[in-house]
C-alpha cells in the first residue's frame, strides 16, 4: 500500500501537468464550441436556405462522426491537404466542432422552449430582430439550456482523453508514458481515473444543484 502511495506521489506532478492540459484543451474547445453551437442553432432556424444547409451539414457531421475520427482527421488528415497543425490546435478544432454540433441541438431545444408569444411581444414593442434575440429570447433559452450545457462540458473533459491518440500530452497520454517506462499500467491508469473523477463527480453534483435551483424559479 505504501508502495502504491509512493508511486502515485512520485508521478503526481507529471499527472497533474497532464490534467492541466486536459482541462486547457477542454476549456478552449468549449470557449469556441459553445458560441459556435449558438450560431449553428440560429443558422439552422435561418430563413436563408444556403445558411441552413451549411449549418445542418456542420452539425450532422459533428454529431455523426466519432470524436476520435474528427481528431485524427484534423491531425493526420489535414496535413495531406497542406494544413499542418500541432496537436493542441488539432485537438481544439476537432473538439470545438464536436462541441458546436452537440450544443447547437441543446441550444435549439432551449430556443424552442421559449413561447412564441415572447417573440411577438418583443416585435410588438418595436425591438428589432437582434434586440429581440439578445434581450428577450436568448436569456430565456439559455437559462433552459444551462444544465444540459454544463453536463455536456463534463462529458467533454472525459472525451478530451481521446487526444492521447494525437500525441497531446494530456492526462491519459501521461499515464501511458509513465506506464510504458515503469510497466505499472494498472496503478497509473487508476490514478488517471481518480483524477478525472475528482473533477467530474463534484461538477456533476454542482450541476444538479444548479438545475434544482433554476427549476425552482421557472
Amino acid at each position: 500500500m505504501n508502495d502504491l502511495v509512493d508511486f502515485w506521489l512520485e508521478h503526481l506532478p507529471a499527472m497533474l501537468d497532464g490534467l492541466m492540459v486536459s482541462v486547457q484543451v477542454t476549456g478552449v474547445s468549449l470557449a469556441i464550441g459553445v458560441p459556435l453551437g449558438l450560431l449553428l442553432a440560429l443558422a439552422v432556424q435561418s430563413r436563408s436556405k444556403p445558411m441552413r444547409g451549411i449549418a445542418i451539414v456542420v452539425v450532422e457531421v459533428g454529431r455523426g462522426a466519432p470524436a476520435l475520427i474528427l481528431l485524427q482527421f484534423t491531425y493526420f488528415g489535414l496535413p495531406n491537404a497542406g494544413l499542418s497543425l500541432d496537436s493542441f490546435s488539432s485537438a481544439v478544432i476537432a473538439l470545438a466542432w464536436c462541441t458546436g454540433a452537440y450544443t447547437s441541438e441543446i441550444i435549439r431545444a432551449g430556443l424552442e422552449a421559449v413561447p412564441h408569444g415572447q417573440k411577438e411581444a418583443a416585435e410588438a414593442i418595436g425591438l428589432n430582430h437582434l434586440d429581440a434575440l439578445r434581450y428577450v429570447i436568448l436569456p430565456q433559452a439559455l437559462r433552459v439550456s444551462v444544465p444540459a450545457l454544463l453536463g455536456f462540458s463534463i462529458l467533454m473533459l472525459q472525451a478530451s482523453s481521446l487526444c492521447f491518440a494525437i500525441a497531446l500530452p494530456e492526462l491519459v497520454s501521461q499515464a501511458y508514458l509513465i506506464g510504458s517506462t515503469t510497466f505499472r499500467y494498472m496503478p497509473i491508469l487508476v490514478l488517471a481515473g481518480l483524477l478525472y473523477a475528482a473533477i467530474c463527480i463534484p461538477a456533476t453534483i454542482a450541476v444538479s444543484a444548479l438545475e434544482r435551483k433554476l427549476g425552482a424559479h421557472a
Binding site: 413561447p115 408569444g117 415572447q118 411577438e120 411581444a121 418583443a122 410588438a124 434581450y135 428577450v136 430565456q140
Partner: peptide, 8 residues
Amino acid sequence: FQSFNLFP
C-alpha cells in the same frame, strides 16, 4: 395580448 406575454 390575451396571455400578457410579459418577459418573465
